[in-house]
């Protein structure tokens, strides 16, 4: 069985992946890299669900005559839904990225924050002249 590979460490490997994605998400400034980090983070959570649903020696949950033990179908259903939610978010995030690139000329979060601040300061000056 392939299962030896997972054994005890299974959950922890998944957690490692999750944190790798989470790190990419919060540590980097590039918007696309953030979205990719988000995807890795999410898919690691999906793996956690699916591992929970696994029954050793079970088979995929499609009823057949000669099979006694099935893995749990419920996590599979939940994760199907969650994957779809994930891709929907990704599509929206990428569309926003495109608009941000067009409006700001960059997709680096630091630069964008700086530009927003500058705009704010400019307005403040205008107000000060009153």
């Amino acid at each position: 069985m392939m299962l030896d590979f997972f054994d005890l460490y299974n959950y922890w490997v998944v957690i490692f992946l999750m944190m790798a994605g989470f790190y990419t998400l919060i540590a980097y400034d590039n918007l696309i890299k953030k979205i990719i980090g988000l995807n890795i983070f999410q898919s690691a959570v999906f793996m956690l669900y699916i591992s929970v649903g696994k029954v050793s020696g079970g088979s995929e949950p499609i009823a057949a005559d000669n099979i006694e033990l099935y893995s749990n179908p419920l996590p599979h259903v939940l994760i199907l839904t969650a994957i779809v939610v994930g891709v929907a978010t990704t599509a929206l995030g990428l569309a926003l990225t495109i608009r941000i690139k067009e409006a700001y000329g960059t997709i680096n979060e630091n630069d964008i924050v700086q530009m927003n601040r500058d705009a704010e300061a400019e307005k403040a000056q205008e107000w000060g002249r009153e």
Partner: peptide
């Protein structure tokens, strides 16, 4: 509003 929406999305 775009950058705000993106930040909120993340």
């Amino acid at each position: 509003s775009l950058s705000a929406a993106f930040q909120y999305l993340i």
